[in-house]
Design a protein around this nucleic acid. Sequence first.
DNA 1: ACAACAAGGTTGAAGTTTCAAGCATTCCGG
DNA 2: CCGGAATGCTTGAAACTTCAACCTTGTTGT
Lengths: 159, 159
Amino acid sequence: MADALWLDDDEMAAWLALVGVVVRLGPALDSQVQRDAGMTHFDYQVLAMLSEAPERTLAMSELASKVNASLSRLSHVVKKLELRGWIHRRPSPTSRRVTECTLMPAGHDVLVEAAPGHVRAVRQLVFDGLTREQVQQLTAIASTMRANLDDSDLRTLDG
Amino acid sequence: MADALWLDDDEMAAWLALVGVVVRLGPALDSQVQRDAGMTHFDYQVLAMLSEAPERTLAMSELASKVNASLSRLSHVVKKLELRGWIHRRPSPTSRRVTECTLMPAGHDVLVEAAPGHVRAVRQLVFDGLTREQVQQLTAIASTMRANLDDSDLRTLDG
DNA sequence: ACAACAAGGTTGAAGTTTCAAGCATTCCGG
DNA sequence: CCGGAATGCTTGAAACTTCAACCTTGTTGT
């Protein structure tokens, strides 16, 4: 391990800027959705994914992977959303170990009401001031990083 | 506000890629530092910032802003780290309402031990596979987003 | 001086996330 | 067809974060 050195200037600048964004983006989206719809950004994503699914229904596992969450986290959150009457859970007819979640009308309504504000927020917080070129650069960069992150899950990072 | 439309294809690609990164980066760093040093990435940052400060000492407020945290969050965490003997808190001699945190030798030791692994992780997770140009692009892009995010804190995003 | 207000911090409760364990169901090799 | 392993999901406890309330100390305006 010859590379125990810290980052060079360019990298450090990028690192600090990135951390600044990562640390603020979540909370910023959270507080916007919270204000507009009384729920978490994560709750919102769950409803949004269901609304785009066929029958507005997905198995827990599929839903979990779409919202980048652990099954455990999702299970807790879905329980909460079910209590609010926004989602319904039932054992799948086709396989007795899967649970299907369906977006209820009440959930769809609240989603529809929250959506415009959320879109505006994403535009303002993320894309405002970026050129079209930068948007494409961002895609490339983030995709590379995403691949790095996925790799490390497997090769537990030890080297 | 005529723009209640969702994102176009380029933007959507960037958005998904970005969310994928944002959602994985924190946990990935967390689990690395957890494994190597039995603490959170956030704990690590606190120790790291103190280690770079003059006298290895900072006021709570300064420390909070360096690690991008609320004072409340920091207070809870510092209490925990103090219990572990890594940090010491004392009222400032110069102003009776500020509390100073100092990194203790034990804290420094644990930090030194964790640092190389952390640096390796950041390199592998973030910079691996990026060209030098992309690193600079990233800085520009993230800085713009950071500015957007900071603005929105003030103008509460209502339009 | 004095009242109001801002700044620096802490705390407890409530909400969220993670962690480890557990249960039932399905798949697979022999 | 049997036993083991993997899959899908839930749960309770522990850890963490946020939120609102509160205390104390400085500051400001009058």
